[in-house]
Nucleic acid binder design. Structure first.
Lengths: 203, 203
DNA sequence: TGAGAAAAAGAACATCTGTGCTATTCTTTG
DNA sequence: CAAAGAATAGCACAGATGTTCTTTTTCTCA
């Protein structure tokens, strides 16, 4: 592997952080070059347009996400534990990102909402996959008998997403120190509503 | 009221839409002037910096929100109906905005996450107020006996926010036609978990 | 070590940004 | 209707943007 590929990876790593902070549009070539001690044109040569840079940044972020959130969680026992593990890893992802600017996917989601093109397309694809991965893990939990047999797994997947969106919003914009605690409470309720009810136990 | 105030209002109205589409930063003075048939300098003279323009845009959006979402809902009977009315009006707000770019508050929330300054400060204030308004309405519902007496009203307010964030995300980025239906389902569950349980009824 | 290729830098481009200053047009009011 | 003041346009600025082309430096491999 030549040196080009190496610095390209370097660039992308830094770019993911910057895009979380400033968005995929706010991520500017000059700024990125400065932070890496490169010239604008030198950096630019690696990607031949800003658009392909943006796409590769997304790609890189997706890989990081798979590696640090999804893959490790899939080693937990299937069913409820795996769902919980996914949640925990996801929370950790946000907390790590919190120091260096927000989550690039959330930033991009809002930014590309209404801007058609290949960058948006790629983002949508990534998000759809992640959505389905969650739903699949939950479905396995149903088959394992951990969750109610008639559970709407897509809805569950979506509720997880809602919780994380709210967590991000509350922790980063409102600076609420209870954000994590509240996200956990939401998740606990979600689990309680979805698992098989134990025999009723009066207090 | 002079003519200046009038066109200023005109500018702000258009600017709110554009900011929802492009963000508060993407909202550029040249673009805004073009769309209104003004000159950049002519428009600029109304606000004396981009920053005060952004703040006034936020202010204007907050007024619109209060007028079309909050105020009408407060006329519903207090308690559960008022909470539901708030939810309905909020959904409608999103659906109306969907045609002309997304919700400016969500766009700004993600954008200003990490950019300190008066614009961010104002946004946070607006969002905190709205958060508390919801919580207050729910608290009244508790006093009315509609909700469980030990309900965590702040948490309820936050759950509503989560649902709306997810709705926006799902409808706009993923283009999922079931977004609204799913948001309603989430809300129904939230209500069921929070209201006084009816005597248990086996199916 | 030296030839050829790869990577990076430099300079220039057209365009856009926010903003200031000056001139012109329009409104209001006496 | 005319004078005063407010609202808008025109022009210029310094800086940043993505991108292209040319030159220089650095790496790779025989």
């Amino acid at each position: 592997m030549g040196k080009g590929e190496l610095t390209r990876q370097n660039i992308l790593d830094r770019a993911v952080g910057l895009a979380g902070l400033l968005g995929l549009d706010g991520l500017t070539i000059g700024r990125l070059a400065d932070e890496l001690g490169l010239s604008r044109s030198g950096l630019f040569a690696h990607f031949r347009s800003k658009e392909t840079l943006q796409i590769q940044v997304l790609e890189n972020a997706a890989n990081q996400f798979t590696e640090t959130v999804i893959r490790p969680s899939l080693q937990a026992p299937r069913g409820l534990p795996r769902v919980q593990s996914l949640f925990e890893a996801w929370v950790r992802w946000f907390k790590d990102l919190d120091k260096s600017g927000g989550c690039i996917f959330i930033a991009a989601a809002v930014e590309l909402d209404d801007r058609p093109g290949p960058v948006r397309d790629r983002l949508v694809e990534i998000q759809r996959e992640w959505f389905q991965t969650r739903a699949r893990v939950v479905r396995t939990g149903v088959e394992q008998g951990h969750f109610k047999p008639d559970l709407d797994c897509d809805q569950f997947s979506l509720e997880m997403n809602n919780i994380m969106l709210g967590f991000h919003y509350m922790a980063r914009l409102l600076d609420d120190p209870r954000a994590e605690e509240r996200a956990r409470k939401s998740f606990r309720t979600l689990i309680e509503n979805s698992t098989i009810k134990p025999k009723k136990q009066d207090s």
